[in-house]
Amino acid sequence: MLPTPTAADTTTAATNGETALPLELLELELSLDGFSGDADAFADAVRTAASQLDGDFLFELPASGLADDCQRIAALRVPKGENGALEVVFALLDAEASSIRVENPDENTAGLKRFADAFIGVLERI
C-alpha cells in the first residue's frame, strides 16, 4: 500500500516527474499549513479552509486507526478538476495536533468515503 502524497511531497514529486497533488488539494493543504491550534481548533480551521475554496465541510471525528499518525479526520467536499465537480477529500490532524495534511480517499478510508457520500445524499434531500 502506497501512502497518499501530501503537499510536502508535491515539490519533490514534481521535480522527480511523479504525479503531484491536484492544484485544488495543494491549495487546500497550503491554506492549512499555518495551523497552530489544537484538536479543538481543528474543525474550525478545516471549515474555514474548505469555505475559501468554495467547498463544504461535512463532518469530523476521531481517526480511530483509519490513517497513520492521525488523531482526527475531517471529510470535505472540494472542487476538483477543470469542471469544478465536488469530490470528497479528507483533512487529517496528526497525532501531536500540530499539523494537518490532506489526502484523497484510499482503501483505508473507503468506508468513511462511502459514509461521506451517504451523508451528502441525506443533505441534498433536506
Rank of each mutant, 00 (worst) to 15 (best):
L58A: 02
F59Q: 00
E60Y: 01
E60Q: 08
E60C: 08
E60T: 05
P62H: 00
P62C: 01
P62I: 00
P62D: 07
P62F: 01
A63C: 12
A63F: 03
A63P: 04
A63E: 08
S64A: 10
S64C: 10
S64P: 00
G65S: 05
G65C: 02
G65R: 00
L66S: 11
L66Y: 09
A67I: 07
A67M: 06
D68M: 06
D68H: 13
D68Q: 12
D69W: 02
D69A: 05
D69E: 10
C70Q: 05
Q71I: 15
Q71Y: 03
Q71R: 11
Q71D: 14
R72N: 08
R72K: 11
R72W: 07
R72P: 01
I73T: 09
I73V: 15
I73Q: 01
A74M: 07
A74H: 03
A74E: 09
A74C: 06
A74P: 06
A75V: 08
A75N: 10
A75Q: 06
A75R: 06
L76V: 06
L76F: 04
L76H: 03
L76Y: 02
L76R: 01
L76P: 07
R77T: 11
R77D: 11
R77H: 04
R77L: 12
V78P: 05
V78Y: 03
V78T: 06
P79F: 04
P79S: 01
P79M: 01
P79A: 03
P79I: 01
P79L: 01
P79H: 03
K80R: 15
K80H: 13
K80T: 15
K80V: 15
K80M: 15
G81N: 11
G81Y: 10
G81I: 05
E82C: 12
E82W: 15
E82Q: 14
E82L: 15
E82P: 14
G84L: 12
G84T: 03
G84H: 08
G84C: 03
A85R: 14
A85P: 03
L86K: 14
L86D: 10
L86M: 11
L86Y: 10
L86N: 09
L86A: 11
E87G: 08
V88L: 10
V88F: 09
V88I: 15
V88S: 06
V89Y: 11
V89A: 12
F90W: 13
F90T: 07
F90M: 13
A91M: 10
A91N: 12
A91R: 08
L92N: 09
L92P: 09
L92Q: 14
L92R: 12
L92E: 14
